[in-house]
Each structure stands twice: as C-alpha cells, then as structure tokens.
C-alpha cells in the first residue's frame, strides 16, 4: 500500500517536472495520446461490432491500425518540428520582445572560444553568461512562442496533412477491397454491397478525434 502511495507521488512529481515548465510539450504528448487512444477505440469498435462480417474485420483491423499510425506519426512529426523551430527562433534571438532585444544589444556576443555569436544563427541566449538578468521575461516569451508553434503544427497536421492523406488512402483501399471481393468466391461469403462498404468506410475513415 505504501509502495502504491510512493508510486502515485512519483507519477505526480514526474508530470509536474516534465510538463509544468513546458506546456507545449504537454500539448504534444497529450495530443499523441489522444490520437493513439482514438485509434485504439476505433479498432475495438470494429472488433466488437457483430454487424461487420469476419472477413471484413480481417481487412479493416490492420488498416485501422495503419490509419492510427499515420495519424500519430503525422501529428508528432509536424507539431514537434514546428515547436522546435519556434524554440529556435527565440533562443537564437531571431524573434524577441523589446526587453530581450535590449538585453542582446548590450551583450558582447562572443563565446568561450572567442568565436563571434550571430543573432539568428549560432546564438543561444540561454547560454549567455548573464542570462539570469532576463531569464523570467525570456521564459515567459519562449513558453508562449512554443505553444503558438505547437498550435500551428497541430492545425497543419490535423486539418490539412492528415485529411488529405486519409482521403487518398481511403480511395486506394476502396479499390483494393473491391478487387479483393471480386477475386473471392462470393457464394461462400456474405455479400458486401458498395453501400455497406461506404457505410463502414464513412464510420472508419472519419477517424473520431478525441
């Protein structure tokens, strides 16, 4: 019982230390979890649905898993890339607010090896010797920029890239499925009409996003 209590505290502390200072990271992780869970729910829905014949299930389940993998991968890659790019914009000083810019203008931008640091290229504000002077303003600005980057990434991924990919895949599968059913001896199988297929695909390829 004591161990469960300790584990519970550890989990709480872990969520606090990982996500507390980094809300953009939290949005990405929970977004990925959301896509993964919604895909898992879709698979379960197909598995427990008695109205879908076994032969169709054998086709639909792997495709649903693939669909889920595409959703998760697209969301993760696009949001992470844009979030990291937003971070880089701020840490390199390419984008700054007035306080950060004034701070940068006062600095002697040379690293420990005597190499010149260029704003928007090889500069990392967080590594400057008197970074603590601007730390609070910088953190507030960076957290906001990260969240904006992540939000733009999720819009691109969920509302443009994934629907386009999904439509392409759905059309390809429709053709594959029709070709497959034509090859099979239809007298031994329950007939799958085009309407029934559309019904299933409409329910499936919509990918309910939680």
């Amino acid at each position: 019982m004591n161990n469960i209590g300790k584990l519970f505290s550890k989990v709480k502390d872990l969520i606090y230390t990982k996500f507390g200072p980094n809300p953009a990271k939290m949005l990405i992780v929970t977004g990925v979890l959301g896509w993964a869970l919604s895909s898992a729910a879709q698979v379960v829905a197909i598995v427990v649905n008695d109205k879908i014949p076994k032969e169709q299930k054998m086709f639909l389940i792997p495709q649903e898993i693939l669909d889920g993998a595409i959703n998760v991968a697209s969301f993760f890659l696009v949001t992470t890339t844009l979030k990291n790019f937003a971070s880089k914009l701020v840490s390199s000083g390419k984008i700054a607010n007035t306080k950060i810019r004034n701070f940068l203008n006062k600095q002697n931008l040379i690293d420990a090896n005597g190499q010149k640091l260029i704003v928007g290229k090889n500069l990392n504000i967080e590594k400057l010797p008197n970074f603590s002077e601007i730390a609070d303003d910088y953190k507030e600005f960076k957290v906001g920029t990260d969240v904006i980057g992540m939000t733009i990434g999720s819009i691109l991924s969920c509302n443009i890239i994934t629907p386009v990919l999904r439509n392409k895949l759905a059309a390809k599968r429709q053709n594959q499925y029709l070709a497959q059913t034509r090859k099979t001896d239809l007298t031994t199988l329950p007939r799958v009409s085009m309407d029934a297929y559309r019904n299933i695909s409409a329910a499936k390829f919509g990918s309910l996003k939680v």
Partner: peptide, 13 residues
C-alpha cells in the same frame, strides 16, 4: 507581448 504571454500561461488542451 501580453497576448504571447497569455497564450503560454492559459492555452490548455
């Protein structure tokens, strides 16, 4: 700047 800061603090899932 206030908007960027507000987004960082308040934009939840």
């Amino acid at each position: 700047n206030r908007t960027i800061s507000w987004i960082g603090k308040n934009l939840s899932s």
